[in-house]
Amino acid sequence: MRVLAAMSGGVDSAVAAARAVDAGHDVVGVHMALNRNPSALRTGSRGCCTIEDSLDARRAADLLGIPFYVWDLSESFVADVVDDFVAEYAAGRTPNPCVRCNEHVKFAALLDKGIALGFDAVATGHYARVERGEDGRAQLHRAADQLKDQSYVLAVLDADQVEHAMFPLGDAPTKAAVRAEAQRRGLPVASKPDSHDICFIPDGDTRGFLRDKLGEDPGEVVDVDGTVLGRHAGTYGFTVGQRKGLGLDRPAADGRPRYVLSISPVQRTVTVGPAERLAVGALTALDPVWSAPEPGGVVEVYAQVRAHGEPVPAVAELVGGELRVQLRTPLTGVAPGQTVALYDGTRVLGSATIAATTPA
């Protein structure tokens, strides 16, 4: 097969490309230039898509003896990931930019361009597996290493995208084993630290980034009975389930910590309360995407709402394009804007964007 290997400049994508070469595929490496600041440099283990990363990717491709190109996908990245991130927070929701990047950039813009150029598949360094079912169709599954499993952020892929996806690290036992393999291969990124946090906010100050984009929009922090407990500079600085940085003027009467329960950008209020009020028993989600056949009627599933969150048993039903999920085990801190991924065992069935929740 002709394989387009997405090379971020990190150890995972380098080893994934190497494994694709070992498998006998005709591999071409490509680094996605997503950062519009050409002088951007990595700070510690934060950020990605910098000049340093593109040079690391090129060195790895040279060592593997494969062609290498840099593709400018920054326009798509800004429109579909960064602008979406800002708009979602402005609306009081909590987006996952990694999910949006996989959906719109890595497996839409990149894959579409690759297919147009005659490639059969895109290989990435994600920890997930693609297996063939009895019907011969590709299925997306969790990785062998549950600690590194990234199937949640890939749950936005549809069936056709999964058909053209390749995850060579899916059977890797641990990240340490991948680093050891990179060392044996002589890849210069073998000991390179992982990137953390949001790649386009390399200093990790999400609230400051949003303040620069949206400006200050002060309002009140209130208790569940409407009592004003403090003030804030913008509702975008909060997310459901948050405990720290609430800016409260006085402690709770019972001395227990408070958490963000809801956010209302229109009223410019942030409501806080005790932990038990965070429990969610059901949720409604929109814009479902299916990597497995679309379910008909009520189905038993496992639902996951965070990249490394615990999957819980649930019942799901698609009603008029709206996904309704009844959780058999309540979850806490579930926020509109998050992605809910549905599983059948290790297999990803699909995902949708949470629009509303119901208390347990």
Rank of each mutant, 00 (worst) to 15 (best):
A159K: 04
L261K: 09
R93S: 00
V130I: 15
R36D: 12
T332I: 09
I51Q: 14
H126S: 02
L55C: 11
P359N: 13
V260E: 01
K106R: 12
T124G: 09
C49D: 14
A335K: 01
V334P: 02
A355Q: 11
K106F: 06
E134V: 12
P274K: 10
T346Q: 15
V298S: 14
T284S: 15
R132G: 12
G245C: 07
M32G: 12
P295K: 12
G9R: 03
L248V: 00
S351I: 00
L169W: 06
G29S: 08
E163T: 14
A16V: 08
D12E: 00
N35L: 06
R211F: 12
A155V: 02
G333Q: 01
G281R: 09
D205Q: 08
A335P: 01
L214D: 00
A275I: 13
V315I: 09
A307W: 06
A116I: 02
A116C: 05
A40E: 13
T94H: 01
A123F: 06
L283G: 12
A79I: 05
G281P: 07
L111A: 06
V156A: 12
G321H: 01
Y236K: 02
A292D: 13
V70D: 09
G136Y: 14
Y343P: 11
A253E: 10
R59F: 04
T94R: 06
R258F: 13
A253R: 14
L286A: 15
S191M: 12
C199R: 06
S191K: 15
V162R: 06
L323K: 09
R250Y: 11
L229R: 12
P193Q: 05
I201W: 02
G186L: 05
K113T: 15
K113S: 15
V122A: 00
